[in-house]
Each structure stands twice: as structure tokens, then as C-alpha cells.
Simulated assay, not measured.
Amino acid sequence: MDATLKTVIAGEIVELPGTIAAIRARLDDDRADEFDRDIEHVPAAELPTALVRWALAGTNADKEDEELFERLARDEDIGATDAGTPGAEVA
């Protein structure tokens, strides 16, 4: 069984392919060719981010993010809470 990544999209837990081969296998031929050209030039430190971006391709997660950022730009309350100051001790 290939490794998977999990995320939440539209309130639902979604499993995404978690290997380079599995990500590529989910792409149509044109996107797979683009993936091949892109992924071999990604710096090692940026590889996890690039793989997640490709794994999310076609999931509508980008649409959900776009809508969220539009709401934020309009200063709407999106229900986010302050995660606190990094490194701050909890009493």
C-alpha cells in the first residue's frame, strides 16, 4: 500500500497520494508530462511543498482557498482563532 497524505477539503477528510509515483499516476498525460518537467527541477528543500501542490491538483482545494482569501480580503469573520505566540508557555 502506497503512503497517503490526509487533509480536509470542504469539511471532509480526503486521502491524497503520498508518493511521487502515485501522484503522477493520478494525472492525465498532459499534466503528467508537466509534473515530470516540474518536479525534477524542484530544490530538495521545496520538494514536500511541490508534491503536496501536485497531490492537491484536481481536488478543488484551490477553489476553497481562493474563496477563503476573498472573504479575508473583505474583512469577513471566518471563524479563525489566534493560535497564540509561538514558543509561549501555557499556564
Score class of each variant (00 low, 15 high):
Met1Leu: 13
Ala3Thr: 11
Ala3Leu: 10
Thr4Val: 12
Leu5Gly: 07
Val8Asn: 04
Ile9Phe: 01
Ile9Thr: 04
Gly11Arg: 02
Gly11Met: 04
Glu12Met: 12
Ile13His: 06
Ile13Asp: 05
Val14Lys: 00
Glu15Pro: 06
Leu16Gln: 01
Gly18Asp: 04
Gly18Arg: 00
Thr19Glu: 01
Arg24His: 03
Arg24Gly: 10
Ala25Gln: 04
Leu27Met: 05
Asp28Pro: 08
Asp30Cys: 09
Arg31Met: 14
Arg31Gly: 08
Asp33Pro: 05
Phe35Arg: 01
Phe35Ile: 07
Phe35Trp: 02
Arg37Lys: 13
Glu40His: 07
His41Tyr: 10
His41Lys: 12
Val42Trp: 02
Pro43Ala: 14
Glu46Arg: 13
Glu46Met: 15
Pro48Ile: 13
Pro48Ser: 07
Thr49His: 01
Thr49Val: 13
Ala50Pro: 03
Ala50Phe: 01
Leu51Phe: 01
Arg53Asn: 12
Arg53Pro: 09
Trp54Glu: 03
Trp54Tyr: 02
Thr59Phe: 04
Ala61Tyr: 03
Ala61His: 04
Asp62Met: 13
Asp65Cys: 10
Asp65Gln: 14
Glu66Met: 14
Leu68Arg: 11
Leu68Gly: 07
Leu68Cys: 12
Leu68Glu: 08
Leu68Lys: 08
Phe69Trp: 09
Glu70Ser: 12
Glu70Pro: 10
Arg71Lys: 11
Leu72Asp: 05
Arg74Pro: 08
Asp77Ala: 10
Asp77Lys: 04
Gly79Leu: 08
Thr81Pro: 01
Asp82Gln: 10
Asp82Arg: 07
Ala83His: 04
Ala83Cys: 10
Thr85Arg: 08
Gly87Tyr: 05
Ala91Ile: 12
Ala91Pro: 15
